[in-house]
Write a protein that binds this DNA or RNA. Structure first.
Length: 476
DNA sequence: ATGTAC
């Protein structure tokens, strides 16, 4: 991208000047190199989001930003319900509440390395992965409604995991306002056997070890130490979330036509927060969030069962569970006033700083764990949320490395088999549901996660706590 | 992301 179109605020923050239909400026976070490599489409999408009714302060893009449907992936925007603010399907994405859950194992890298091939094979048999893949659960209509209303609380009540887990999930494992009545029967039917499944695309389960600590105090609070092994899950709301997205793009599109609402792009279909369609979408989206939280809770239980077979003394504790595709109602300071805003994070992680009431007591002194899923060949990171991020970005940070090329480009450049060989040569064992998926997710198809995280850290969006290296991966 | 183009 041509950076002469931007105003440099500092080395890691760039302003898109307000012009044309934009109601507010845009703000791009990232090093000069990351911004130069950005697709021009990201600038266009950030500008289009800035033109949406009721947007507050600025349209934002995190350092891992790339092109998405409507909003860029890595896009963050807050809307004021008292000033005609809207809620947008493309501001959340199809994979509602896709997110990362990390569990501490209490084991060391050496403990795990000695049995790694057996462990990865066991995990591959226990964790259902792949497109259209169902799991062990077969839920009735009323059971699924309970999942949508109660999220991870439902899962814990059914015996998946422990009640302590709930404290370490955003929103206590259950987003309020979910109403299954505004979710289609199609969406529910598709989800009946998909609770407790990984899915496909960029979803995965990784066994990782901590190879660097940057902030001792936060690492101590998060229970991380060098050489310690953790398990991270990356997945979302599966068919249910996707169908809710599909349904509401149509519903909101028809409503916009009826109201002759002019939109900056067809892909930015939205409805006023204070409208029937807007309220319905929020309630359906909250069902998607709860489905994802229940899904990760059940998967966490399956991981614990697998580890119990091989390490009977190990106790896997939930470090945290974050969502990075959401719209949430949060209180933030706007011009000295505390306002309740609808914060859209699409491929962006919440990054609340120390002191926020939403955080578990054990982390309130250091900030929220910000779980960054990298690639299966490079690294993932754990950061801590900051007060500065609350001032700059509604308390948000990046969510991953961010794609550097499309899936199609990646499959032209790499073959799944050779990617797997290369990883195995480096000691990273992968069991994948599809070879094509491996090529699409080749580490080289992503931006440099170290640079993305460094930018996130220096921009003040979150601060580095520890880096994780992959040992084994179950790929969707 | 996705019963990967109902």
């Amino acid at each position: 991208m041509d950076t002469s179109l931007l105003r440099r605020i500092n080395a890691y923050c760039w302003e898109v000047p307000q012009q044309g239909a934009m109601r507010v400026p845009g703000r791009l976070f990232g090093s000069g190199a990351l911004i130069r490599d950005l697709d021009d489409m990201v600038l266009e999408q950030v500008s289009q989001v800035a033109a949406l009714p009721g947007i507050v302060r600025a349209s934002l893009a995190m350092p891992d930003a790339h092109w998405g449907y409507g909003f860029p992936i890595g896009g963050v925007a807050a809307f004021d319900p008292d000033r005609g603010g809207i809620i947008s399907v493309g501001g959340v994405g199809y994979d509602i509440s896709c997110g990362v859950r990390t569990l501490r194992t209490g084991l060391s890298k050496e403990d795990v390395l000695s049995v790694l091939p057996e462990l990865v094979d066991l995990l591959a048999t226990v964790i259902p992965a792949g497109v259209g893949r169902g799991g062990q659960l077969r839920l009735s209509g009323s059971e699924l409604d309970d999942v949508l209303r109660l999220g991870a609380r439902w899962a814990v009540a059914q015996g998946y995991g422990e009640s302590r887990d709930l404290e370490y999930i955003e929103d206590g494992g259950c987003l309020s306002g979910a109403n299954p009545e505004v979710v289609s029967e199609t969406a529910k039917k598709r989800q009946q056997d998909q609770v407790g499944t990984l899915g496909s695309g960029n979803h995965y389960l990784e066994v990782q070890y901590v190879d660097a600590i940057y902030d001792q105090a936060a690492a101590f609070a998060f229970g991380l130490k060098e050489g310690g092994v953790v398990v991270s899950l990356h997945c979302g709301s599966r068919a249910l979330g996707h169908q809710i997205g599909t349904d509401y793009i149509q519903i909101l599109g028809r409503a916009a036509q009826k109201r002759s609402l002019h939109l900056p792009s067809r892909d930015l279909v939205c409805a006023p927060i204070d409208s029937k369609e807007g309220r319905d979408y929020y309630q359906a989206m909250a069902c998607g969030v709860n489905c994802a939280l229940a899904n990760r809770q059940v998967l966490g239980h399956l991981v614990r069962q697998a580890f119990a077979e091989m390490f009977p003394l190990a106790r896997l504790e939930l470090l945290y569970d974050v969502s990075h595709n959401t719209c949430k109602v949060e209180d933030h300071d706007v011009d000295g006033l505390r306002k309740s805003l609808y914060v859209h994070r699409k491929g962006a992680t919440r990054s609340f700083g120390p002191g926020r009431q939403e955080l578990p007591a054990a982390y309130r002194g250091v900030g929220q764990p910000v779980l960054i899923g990298g690639t299966m060949g490079t690294a993932s990171y754990i950061l801590a949320g900051t007060v500065e991020s609350e001032a700059m970005a509604w308390g948000s940070a990046c969510h991953g490395a961010g794609r550097a090329m499309s899936r199609k480009q990646a499959t032209k450049r790499w073959k799944g088999k050779s990617v797997l060989h290369e990883l195995e040569h480096r000691g990273i064992l992968v069991r994948a549901a599809s070879q094509r998926g491996v090529a699409e997710e080749a580490p080289g198809a992503y931006k440099d996660v170290d640079e993305v995280v460094e930018s996130t850290h220096h921009a003040g969006l979150a601060r580095k706590v520890g880096r994780l290296r992959p040992l084994a991966c179950i790929k969707g």
